[in-house]
Design a protein around this nucleic acid. Structure first.
Lengths: 114, 114
DNA sequence: CGGTTATATAATGCATAGGTTAAATACATG
DNA sequence: CATGTATTTAACCTATGCATTATATAACCG
């Protein structure tokens, strides 16, 4: 999974990891703090954190024995950038524009003309 | 991978599948048309299409022997919706707003007050 | 019907993901 | 320095992902 977009998407595909990010959106947290809400073991959380870190979605500091994690924006920004390519497919207003243009093309007499 | 957001992200995590979507963004295509650009076998493409279909990212019709595929927007829209939660992390303008608010909080005398 | 084209499914192999428990490392402190 | 706390790494297991080739299904056409 060499490319970073694939790494980002794969990292985000796991619900546990998304929950971790949701927690980090509220501020830094230690590994222990991140583990407690989950029923899985703490080493499992460490693995998830490693995946998130390698995808660049989190970074970690060092405070005594603790390794505080914080959310990193860059990969999310890149993902949004990629999604922009498909904006005309998912954006509601684009949908309406599309419908409008199709009406024009049909020459529907109910629609305004110029 | 029961939840649909996980399914969407997992489907998008594969570069071949993203390339297929990129092709479909230009219009419907048959399985054969989708296979030709790739070095992998046609059954492999069929499997990718199945993954995309189960994630709701494509739908398929039937025209003679051909099964034309087309891009479906809904899961992308949902993904963008999920990303909105993190907008303040990835949006540049939010970054600037953040910095501004922090300046205010510090009581920096260079900054305007009200 | 018999052959051709388009696509899907089956059987299989191998690598990776995600979990576990047990052991190692890193730092703090009495 | 010995011990406790926080976290990582190792060894292992099972399930799933992605590819392959061979075979089956579906629809068209002479």
């Amino acid at each position: 999974m060499s490319d970073s977009l694939s790494a980002t998407l794969a990292a985000l595909a796991d619900p546990t990891r998304r929950a971790i990010l949701a927690r980090l959106a509220q501020g830094e947290a230690s590994v222990n703090e991140l583990s407690t809400p989950f029923s899985i073991s703490q080493p499992a959380i460490s693995k998830h954190l490693k995946v998130l870190e390698q995808a660049g979605l989190i970074s970690r500091g060092r405070v005594a024995q603790s390794r505080p994690c914080r959310l990193e924006a860059a990969p999310l920004r890149d993902l949004v950038g990629w999604l922009e390519t498909y904006r005309r497919f998912w954006d509601q207003s684009f949908d309406r524009l599309d419908a409008y243009l199709k009406e024009l093309q049909k020459g529907n007499p109910d629609e305004p003309r110029n």
